[in-house]
Structures are given as structure tokens and as C-alpha cells.
Design a protein around this nucleic acid. Sequence first.
DNA 1: AATGATATTGATTAATTTTAACGATTAATT
DNA 2: AATTAATCGTTAAAATTAATCAATATCATT
Lengths: 290, 290
Amino acid sequence: MELRQLNYFVKAAEHLHFTEAAGACFVTQSTLSQQIKQLEEELGMLLFDRIGKHVRLTEAGNVFLKHARQILRDVAKSKEAISELNSLAAGDLKIGVTYAFSSMVLPALTPFSFKYPGIKIYVEYGPPEVLELKLKGAELDIILTFHEESDNEGLEMQPLFSSRIMMVVSKKHPLAALKKITVNELGALDLILPGKGFSSRDYVNEIFRKKNILPRVRIEMNEVNSLLSLVENTSWVTVLNEKAIMTWDSLVAIPIAGKERYKRAFILWQKGVYKKKAATLFIEELSKVL
Amino acid sequence: MELRQLNYFVKAAEHLHFTEAAGACFVTQSTLSQQIKQLEEELGMLLFDRIGKHVRLTEAGNVFLKHARQILRDVAKSKEAISELNSLAAGDLKIGVTYAFSSMVLPALTPFSFKYPGIKIYVEYGPPEVLELKLKGAELDIILTFHEESDNEGLEMQPLFSSRIMMVVSKKHPLAALKKITVNELGALDLILPGKGFSSRDYVNEIFRKKNILPRVRIEMNEVNSLLSLVENTSWVTVLNEKAIMTWDSLVAIPIAGKERYKRAFILWQKGVYKKKAATLFIEELSKVL
DNA sequence: AATGATATTGATTAATTTTAACGATTAATT
DNA sequence: AATTAATCGTTAAAATTAATCAATATCATT
């Protein structure tokens, strides 16, 4: 049994006239006739009574017609479903976001969701290792992260932007108007720093180690929003990449003296898998707001 | 899109291994690979991610899998439905019965319905012309009737039995023990006769006309059971074919002198249409009880 | 007999399947 | 770490199978 035959059958049942039905199917009457005969043979029952010049459905034909129509409806539905995915009228997008990135996704989320209301977005925050595992297991479509190049097997890295690592303080902070700060000066301040896993943290460790300074780390946390919220309301300072405070009007980023250090943001894809259109478009949206 | 491809796809989605899936479909792996590719092209989306040696469903693949399964379930259901018809586990049988025949169908109905509990039986009593019209319009499968040969266009007659036309009285009737009755004697009795359309009525008219006797017809009705019920409880007599009283223990049939006259019972089919198995088997059952 | 329908037939075309060669990836062995 | 062998999916070409067409046969109706 093939869908082609079901199509021919339904048309024939509708016209009750093989020649007409064949025309409607854009085949010759002979073709339709044979395919219906084949169908009848497979089913072991006649679907039409051929009475002289007329054809008419048998009991089996009537029963089968209902089923054939149902099948063809389902087929149409299946195509419809795929076509909705294709036109982004449906589907989902699962984005992994590392903590340091969290404030950057938010501004892209709303416009994207507005443009493609059919697409359900899942955002998962987590440490890079966990997210990467999920990406490989197809539980995520993409990861947005700061990352060092190269060390990834089976992952594809697409550079997004670079963001300079700076000191961040509240605008109400005495040092808020500073043009630049030295590492020595920084060593004298109370720090609230991102936890391990954040690459800006590695940078902080490095600059202090070089100068043999023991930084005054008061709090360490791996959730950027909470961290910035503390910075906003205290005189503590932190060190983060510049873009991380883009949604925070009450904060200001101040360059650190010495060699400029940048964090590079990437999108991670799984190598070899089909790149979802929705993911590509989300990235487009993300680039716009950055 | 063809059912073949859906089968391949579902198997592949289940195994997540083309070679195995191909084995399960009894085709080579290349065949399966190509057909799936073709399906993907028609849908305009990849259904599988091919990552090295592994394959895995894409979002579209997951969506489509649900639909494909539904379609294949429907297909199986449709075959099941036909196969039930074939095995007489389902279906219907529409029998037309002329009034004179009515008492003959009943004994066949119960055993048949017992044997084939899935078959729904419709019995329609009516005058021959109406029934024949319905037979031609496929509203009936067969007609059971007494009929003269030949006069039927497009109908096929299958002889069932012959039944002699006799006088019928109650066993309590004074004449119940009679071996034979003459037309003259019959003319002196109160008669309750089947109405026009009954061929035994034509016979009665004829024999009386030949002898120039005016019969004493007290009641005329075209429903045999009611008629016989009256005969059972009165001293009126009727003229019917012998088989018509087969279920009536309290009645007796007495031959009428002169040339024996038989009524011939037939099954009428529409010429050229597929003979339902159920109909054939019903007739078999009918022959048994006659 | 002529007509209007489906069925059948043989030739042609198209599609499916297979075979075989290939490339990429993984696992095993050296 | 490098080499080898094995596994898997893809591709291209050949072989097989199936669908289609055009012409004709057949059948019932007019």
C-alpha cells in the first residue's frame, strides 16, 4: 500500500468515475485503474463494484474510504508541522548561557520572542562543562560563553565579540569618575569577585600574582546579577568584562592600567549538526543589541 | 512522500542506526539512506543529524516521527478494518424480504447472528417493487422473494426452493384433518387472503375465475404474520404457499385439488456487484432451516 | 450498431534497489 | 603517537522493479 494509491482511490471514490478521477490525478485512466486494482489485491477485497458503465463503492470501499481520508489528512498535517518549523512559526530553541554572559542575553530575548512568537525559548544558566555536555547530548542548541579558543573536541566556535576586562563600581562610588586605575590601587580596594570558572577571575588572579599583591576578596560568587546588585549598593568593586554591565545604568566600568586584556565571547555549536534557523536568527538579534 | 519512506524513517529513528534499521526493513543500508534523504528533500528539512558514525534525530525529526507513527498506525487500522470485513468479524448485511417470505427468514436469523456476531443485520419488509429499487441503489444486499422468472433487468435470480400453494387452516378447524379440498368447497368458506402483490393471491383469483365462483373474501391484508395469527384463532381459512407456515405449529396446510401450483422462491442480487460473503453465508443458513 | 465506460496489453519511462567504491570516524594494536 | 582494521553513511552506476502511457479489447447501455 502506498500513499499514491490512496490518493487515486479517494479521487475515484469522489468522482465515482475512473476516467474523470484519473484526470484529476493527472494520470491516464489505465494507470488509476491498475493502481486501484493493486490496492484491492493487497486488501483482498474489491473496493468498487463495476456495474456496466458505472462504478460504485462496495461495503469494503466505504469502510476503506474513511480510513484512506484519515491517512491523507494525517499526511497533510505532518507536512504542515514541518513547514511551520521551517517558517519558524513553531519550534523551540534551547540556549545555554554561562554565568558571565547572563546579562547579555536578556536584551536579545524580548525582541526575538516578539518576532517569532511560535518559538519556545529555553534558557539554561550553568557552568561551561555542564552546558557543553548538554550541547553534545542535544539538550541544548547553542551555548553563549566566554571561552579560550581551541580546547574543544566536537564543538564549533563562532566568535561573537571581544569585551575588555575592567573594574566595575557603582556610579555613586568615590572612584566612579576615574579614567584609569592601577593594579596597585585595585589591591587596596575591597573586592567582590566572580568565582572560579569565570575567566575574568583568572585574569584578576594573574595581575595580582605578578605584582605579589594579596587582593582583598570579600565575597566570591558565580551569579553575575547578584554580584552586580551588591556592587550597585555597596562600595565594593569587582572586575568583569565591560559588556557584562550593559544593562546596568547605575554601574560604571573603569579601565585597568597595563596591558589591555580582552575576553572573547563565542557561540558554541555541536560540530556537524544541522544549524537551526532559529538559533542563527537569535544570534543575529543578539548581535544587534550588543 | 510514500508509506515506504515513512516506514524506513520510523525504523531508523527507532534504531538510530541506519544499517540496523535497513536490516529490519529487509533492504540494504544504501536504500534506506537514499529514501530518507529523499524524504528530507521533500520536507525541506533534515530529519537526522549525522555526527561521525552516529545519527540522531533533529528537532524536525522528532516532530515528524510522531506524525509518521500516527500515519502508520492509521494504515494498520485500515487494513485491520478490511480484514475484519473479510473474516466476517464486522460488516453489515441488508436483506429485503417480501411479505410472503417473512416467516421464512426468522428461523435463519438467530443462528446466523450467533455464528457471526460482528455482522449487523438489517431486515426490511416491503413490496417487491420498492425492495428492487433499493437493491439497485445498493441500499439492500439481497432480496428474498417469491417471483416469476425473467422479468428483471439488472437483477440476478438465484432459485431457492419451490413451495406448493395450499389452503391453510387452524388445527382446531373442522376441516383440519382433510386430505384435499376442491375449489368448489373452498369457495364456500370464509377467506382471509393476502393482498395484491402476493403471487398466491393471483393464483386464488385465477382458480375461482375459471370456475366462475365469487370467493367469500372477508379480510385482505399484506402482512403474513397478522394474517396467520387470525387464521390461528378463527375458523377463517387462507391460501398460501406451504413453507409460509413452517414456524406455525398450530396451523395445517391442505392441498387444493386440480393442477398443483408452486411458488418459486428466489434470492435477488444486483447483477455485476461483488457478492458479499455474509450474504452467501446467510443463504446457506437459510437453506439449512428450510 | 454506436457509445461510453473500465480492463488489458505491450512498450516506455521512471523509480527503487542493489552493488561496489569511497570517505570519514572510531577502536584496537603496535 | 602512529598505524591498522573495522564500522558506518554517502555516492555513483548498474540492475531490477514498478508506474505510466497509448492503443486496444471488452462489456453493458442506449
